[in-house]
Design a protein around this nucleic acid. Structure first.
Lengths: 204, 204
DNA sequence: GCAAAAACTGTACTGCCGGTATTGTAAAGC
DNA sequence: GCTTTACAATACCGGCAGTACAGTTTTTGC
């Protein structure tokens, strides 16, 4: 029992590091098994193919990220009872968190999956979509609360606004990679925060 | 002269279609040469490796896109002398343009290149970075003009704001793919437009 | 009109990689 | 003590990027 899941997570750890550094397709199974000091048979015992590995990586990542976001926006909510202030604090904390992340954000895995669509099968695409919809489900109620208290100055669809969190992060990661500027993502999050402020905060 | 460049662009046309549909790595050279009715030797006569093909595709795409943006924001500028209004009109036109694009936006090529970083060599990464900086150079002066006339309500870095155009588009494309919703990108552009409006437009 | 360069064809091969197949085996659980 | 789990070992297939090299046609420059 213990032995099996240990090997499995060892494979996943090694794979995740390589995938974040080089991308999914340029990470070979043979390289992973060599690094994990197992044989190919061992790998295929745990994962029926490379898709299954991608699926497992994304699934695990979603869990970690959910816990992280629960903590982060929970703390923000502790710091202010006001839903708008809590959101602004949460976005600031998020920007700081991402900036401090060495070697980039694991969200790359999800984005990579989105772009290499045909490379993956339906299962991987579905769990990827579920992850994005999970973010929407997380942020939408927060924006509902904010909008209930502070009428937005512009008519906006709150689902689309919730999706903008993902958009800015994923887009920011792409920009960060393209420009070799790791700070890009957090800068873009701060701009989004500025938008939220202008959209909901009453003028003095 | 004519024959050579004809074959070359035929290869690129076929490759581009396949890359947009399936991604770069799952488009094989053998498949391209079969479709172009040439031999493998013919392909490698024009492109020394797959990197060179990617480079050529991105380079050509940048040219097309530049012309397209010149036209689009030129028309917007014709419709209004005010820099803010011109920007808002331009973003609206951009959102409509992207929405009407069947089969997604060619910008995918650039984003794919950013994400499959290690898959490509330095040349490809550099031209990709140049493309992103080109967008910044395009939008930054526009925001300078706007900010000179309408002082922004929030302190923002105008380079970062210019980069947000790219961010929202690239992020929107990722979201669109993940959710299988082609409208996502244009919706996100319209949210960015709403931000620009709130940031610069004087309150009544 | 002819030589040289450009634009290929044809064939054969290497090496990496994902995935399959099969046989065997040490350890854990019941 | 028998079965299941968790692998190891070896060998192989097919797809694909890229190379090598020799030969052939088409275009161009003089």
């Amino acid at each position: 029992m213990a032995r099996g899941s240990e090997t499995r997570s060892k494979i996943m750890d090694i794979a995740q590091e390589a995938v974040l550094a080089k991308g999914f397709d340029s990470t070979s199974i043979e390289e992973i098994v060599a690094s994990a000091e197992i044989t190919k048979s061992g790998f295929f015992y745990h994962f029926k193919d490379k898709n299954a590995l991608a699926y497992a990586l994304i699934e695990r990542h979603i869990g970690v990220e959910d816990a992280l976001f629960d903590d982060l926006f929970g703390r923000a909510r502790d710091l202010s009872d006001d839903p708008l202030q809590a959101m602004l604090i949460g976005l600031k904390l998020l920007a700081e968190l991402i900036e401090d992340m060495p070697g980039g954000h694991p969200g790359c895995i999800v984005a990579t999956a989105a772009y290499q669509d045909r490379l993956f099968n339906n299962d991987v695409r579905e769990i990827n979509a579920r992850a994005v919809l999970g973010w929407r489900a997380r942020f939408r109620p927060m924006f509902d609360d904010i909008a209930a208290k502070y009428p937005p100055r512009e008519a906006v669809d709150l689902d689309q606004l919730a999706d903008m969190v993902s958009t800015v992060i994923e887009g920011g990661l792409v920009m960060g990679r393209a420009l070799a500027n790791p700070a890009a993502t957090s800068q873009q999050i701060m701009l989004f925060r500025s938008y939220i402020k202008l959209l909901f905060q009453p003028q003095d």
